[in-house]
Design a protein around this nucleic acid. Sequence first.
DNA 1: CTGAAAGCGCTAACAT
DNA 2: ATGTTAGCGCTTTCAG
Lengths: 328, 328
Amino acid sequence: MTTRSRRPTIRDVAERAGVSKSLVSLALRDDAGVSDTTRARIKQAAADLGYRSNSLARALVQGRTGQVGVVVTDLTNPYHAEVALGVEDAATTAGLTTLLANGRRDPGRLAAHLHTFLELNVDGLVVVSSRVEPEVLSSVAREVPVTVVGRPESLPAGVDNVAGDDRHGARLATEHLLGAGHRRIAFATASTRPAARARRAGYAEAMRAAGLGDGTVHVVGDDARDDSIDAVLDSDATAVFANHDLLAVDLLDRAVDRGIAVPERLAVIGYDDTDLAARVRPRLSSVDQRGAALGGTALDLLRERAGGRSEDRHAVLTPVLRVRSSSA
Amino acid sequence: MTTRSRRPTIRDVAERAGVSKSLVSLALRDDAGVSDTTRARIKQAAADLGYRSNSLARALVQGRTGQVGVVVTDLTNPYHAEVALGVEDAATTAGLTTLLANGRRDPGRLAAHLHTFLELNVDGLVVVSSRVEPEVLSSVAREVPVTVVGRPESLPAGVDNVAGDDRHGARLATEHLLGAGHRRIAFATASTRPAARARRAGYAEAMRAAGLGDGTVHVVGDDARDDSIDAVLDSDATAVFANHDLLAVDLLDRAVDRGIAVPERLAVIGYDDTDLAARVRPRLSSVDQRGAALGGTALDLLRERAGGRSEDRHAVLTPVLRVRSSSA
DNA sequence: CTGAAAGCGCTAACAT
DNA sequence: ATGTTAGCGCTTTCAG
């Protein structure tokens, strides 16, 4: 039953069609210079044998694999998954295949995956993580084009980057709340990394523009049960802009527990526009980073590099506000 | 800056160390029969050059790549993502690397990914989907070991399988509701595929055992706004067991909209124990299929095949009930 | 212990 | 239009 026999090679096809090895190669790749009749005969032979070309061998001789590696910090984060899908779509369109690996928020594991991909001779790498050491990025980028999606602490030379305009997104969210008449608007974050800092800056900017000083920033604990979540609810804020959806959902939850009506007594808005935002009650307003577009852009940058560009590019995408009932 | 120079090969290392090509190969793989001093010299030379072996070339000559392909129906489904992570963990432990591809619920795309992986000469395939055509599975399984995770309509010979015990899981859920005193318990599902049928059977079994006949089954529409969701709420049921978490969450939502108290007036329990279950309000009770364990088992089966087993194996894992406030 | 040579399956330059 | 030949980078006999 399980006839796991040796796979037919180009040689077997040649023999069956009664031609030479190289002619088979040409014919199968629809290269010019093969008569129609011969080509038909060869293709028939290949089909008969169930021949499928060995991409390993081809890659070895051509020096390129047509594969791009995507390394993601955390696939269980729907935003990251969305970026990965965006890369995959663009790659498929370009006739490339993607390999995906999950780093689980661990810089060591992330680096290991990058090296595995290098050994597989991928033609390019997309890093959906801001946790990879700059030295690692830069050493990897010496071998193949690399695009980082997101905002790492520092980005070495030789590496491309694409990120959402966090500052602008934060301004959108804050201005939306201001427009609804809120004055005491707080910003809450558990992170102090670059993306969070940019959002904080955008928030402060909008507050200042409205003559409200720098606003109020709450740096909360990572844990939903943390008292710092309560501190936000205990403040006099009538609206809170959370650095990401998960935090916003935690705030929503605590508010429900404590009988604080959302959005009547407290408006809440998140960031990332994950599935969760559209599922919780009340529906969470959120800033959409357009993850799929980020992923697609990352692949474009890779292809530009492969095409010869040598100066670094840092692309920025404009996010979009999705208003739902948590802030309406 | 971007010195994307030719990667050093085993030849360069040999030259630098002043030995022959093959000796480098032996030394680097810690093969016996190389003197310690020579080995040290060779390793030093390799390190100096930043040599990294070309896995393509190695795979070509060895006929195996050390890679297993994982094809998932829908990575945005957290349950599937969990299975994929389980495979990855087990693979890493076994010194294998995993390649991940996303099929987006499309049988055509799923099949295409399987073939891509075959061309990459993976040593085995894990299919986390019940949507791949049996003919595709069986043709693929002629070339490499294949394990399907889940319950496809039909499973061809030559393919291994691992699935949760859906019948048992459904019984657990139903018995839990019975134990809480419920009598009018409904089963709701949008699917009529094998997993759903098995859960329905488990539900009916538990109901009969309690002397409640076959119970009441609602086949609802896929869409949350569908009236059929309301039909469940309008029935006289005091508890509902939903075929999966997303459906359970839709029920929860509609119940909230209509002022139906959960769990006081209606208890709800889901299946899959996704992140969502622990995040919605009220917290959703759910049956945990133990996705990571399913993934790990899938890899074990693959390795057994590679080790020479020729008869098919169908492994079954026992699920676990997670009780939260939606049914307490 | 070390080196030379063959070959994995394919492509591409070079004949014919 | 078709065939020959020389590798891609590595492992693996088989002689020295």
